[in-house]
Nucleic acid binder design. Structure first.
Length: 129
RNA sequence: CCAGUUGGCCGGACAGCCGCGCUCCGCAUUGUCGAAAGACAGCGGGGGGAGGAAAGUCCGGGCUCCACGGAAACACGGUGCCGGAUAACAUCCGGCGGGGGCAACCCCAGGGAAAGUGCCACAGAAAGUAAACCGCCCCGCCUGCCUUACGGUCCACAAACAGUCCGGACCUUAAGGCUGGCGGGGUAAGGGUGAAAGGGUGAGGUAAGAGCUCACCGCAUUUCUGGCAACAGAAAUGGCAGGGUAAACCCCACCGGGAGCAAAACCGAAUAGGGAUGAUGCGGAACGCAGGUUCCAGCCCGUUUCCGGGCCAGUCAUCCGGGUUGGUUGCUUGAGGCAGGAUGCAAAUUCUGUCCCAGAAGAAUGGCUGUCGCGUCUGCCAGCAAUGGCAGGCCUUACAGAACCCGGCUUACAGGCCAACUGGUAUU
């Protein structure tokens, strides 16, 4: 099951400010996790990814496991489909822990390949009724 | 073999593929990021990489910075049988005392309640200068009944009267007894209440009772003996006083500065702003032309007192230095592990040899697959049963992830292993 192509080069998000920036980007919901995507508009840089597992999802052992499985899924498969210059943040949910690995990988690939929808204009004036 | 007690240990294994962070060696010796400090990057090879609790952060230390003039008192917090171990402890070891268990063994916040104050719910008469609900006992009065005695009346006997050996009924009086009621007193044995009722058991004693008296036990005081001590034992005396509660206040003895690796040090852009020195100048009063000196105030050194020390608002000038972001150090060689010896009942100490064993920072130590093992469920078969075999399914496992480091405590934990001991049962 080893991929015949070399591992893709994917950077990591490490600072709180970077995570907060991606929160303003597009959100793709679905099973297992929520994917947040932000186009930084820099085409010649490698894509970067960060993982968010909140304390509500379990104790330290379970949180570690969720992060590791997601990281492995990105490393083995999903990383090839990430666009350069984009930042991705995976917000894990509890069922990441028990999901079959193949299903988790497939879900992640699909979510990344999903075409970028038109961003709704984030105007709070429209919401006020 | 069954049941149990104590102590210790393990807590999936192997293989394959792909990864992560740390470090070492060799070869290359340049590039990338950045304001700087600094960090990262190539190829090949090697090494090691979570736990018994890494957890809770409850104690104790190391380490770091801050604070700190002395003495006494006070306040606050903690500890609390004795001896030992230790860097230290609320830990550990060995004893003592009390309680539980047939036993191995386990549990104890275990100083002081005759220094004082407080509290003791409900129930109960009474919760602490004892008291008196029922009961028990004594005395007085009243009522009823019984027995005896004297007397009387009637019946019966007899019959003419007299009479009463014997019998019965009723009445008066007296004495005694019993039942009930009322009043006065004694009592603390018994009942009842309660977590707890002012020593326990037995005998004597008494109207009934009571340490009222006696014996034994307990208790208190004194003395002696053993023990380093906690304490234990014995004797004499006392004659029962002194209920519980100190995780209620309190008293006594001992101990204790504060904050924590996001500590702290160093390197380091801009900007806000800090410190030192000098000048001017200072809350009051006195002296002096003035600089200034003295006294009284004020503030600081945990509080107070005494002694002692320091500081003065504001403005201006000069000089020094660098919060935050980022980076490096701290950061893993340590009260260290393992093996053996010595001392000690033990906790532990000590000697020799040997080993280097995670150092992350949105946080590495993993992901997937296969085989086995373990567990569990279902079905079938064998068996009286315990159980065993086969097939299939599930979970690939409990509790749980280092964050400066040690020593403990506490809490969580699927399943399993070993040793010693105790009580049964069977066999010899």
């Amino acid at each position: 099951m080893a991929p015949d192509r070399p591992s893709p080069e994917v950077g990591r998000l490490k600072k709180r400010a970077e995570f907060l920036a991606v929160r303003d980007g597009e959100r793709r919901r679905g099973p297992f996790f929520v994917l947040e995507v932000l186009d930084r508009g820099v085409l010649d840089e490698a894509p970067r990814i960060g993982y968010t597992v909140t304390k509500r999802q379990g104790n330290a052992v379970e949180r570690n496991r969720m992060r590791r499985r997601l990281r492995e899924a990105v490393h083995l498969a999903a990383g090839f489909d990430m666009k350069p210059g984009h930042d991705y943040v995976v917000v894990a949910r509890r069922d990441t822990l028990k999901a079959p690995f193949a299903k988790l990988t497939q879900s992640l690939v699909n979510r990344i390949e999903q075409p970028a929808r038109e961003r709704r204009p984030k105007a709070p004036d429209n919401r006020t009724k």
